[in-house]
Amino acid sequence: MELTYEVEGGNFSKAGHASSSIKKVLKQLNVDPKVVKRVVVALYEAEVNVVAHAYNGIITARVEQGSVSIEVRDQGPGIPDIPLAMQAGYSTASAKVREMGFGAGMGLPNMKKNVDVLNISSQVGVGTRVELITYF
């Protein structure tokens, strides 16, 4: 099964829409709740990153027997130094993002903790692609 969602940069009122929808689908498919939580926490972090740091994005989730693969691709400023961005506490979040309760520099490390495979590639001035794979 393949699901696709659009994400609007800067729009915090809609952030989480895709993650919520994918959570409902995984629950309906009777995936173990612990696995569902790991998948959707990581996806929500990625979705909020598009809202917080990029201009717009597309989420594609592929649910198969025994795995969930999610690609979050955005048009945005990109990440110049990925190992630096992966460090806990590193953040370039704006004051507006911090006011919403985000911007602690915990999102990428938390994605890494929750999924089996995290791949990030990015081109400065073009955008970022985050791939999250979970096996169950």
Binding site: F12, V41, V48, G101
Partner: peptide, 29 residues
């Protein structure tokens, strides 16, 4: 919410003064 998302304890109450839809989304996820 960044900190809340790192928890993996069951049966939690989240006590917060952060009052927006992302608070609820965070609890949901």
């Amino acid at each position: 919410m960044s900190d809340v998302l790192t928890l993996d304890t069951d049966g939690l109450v989240l006590i917060t003064g952060m009052c927006n839809t992302q608070t609820i989304r965070t609890a949901e996820m």
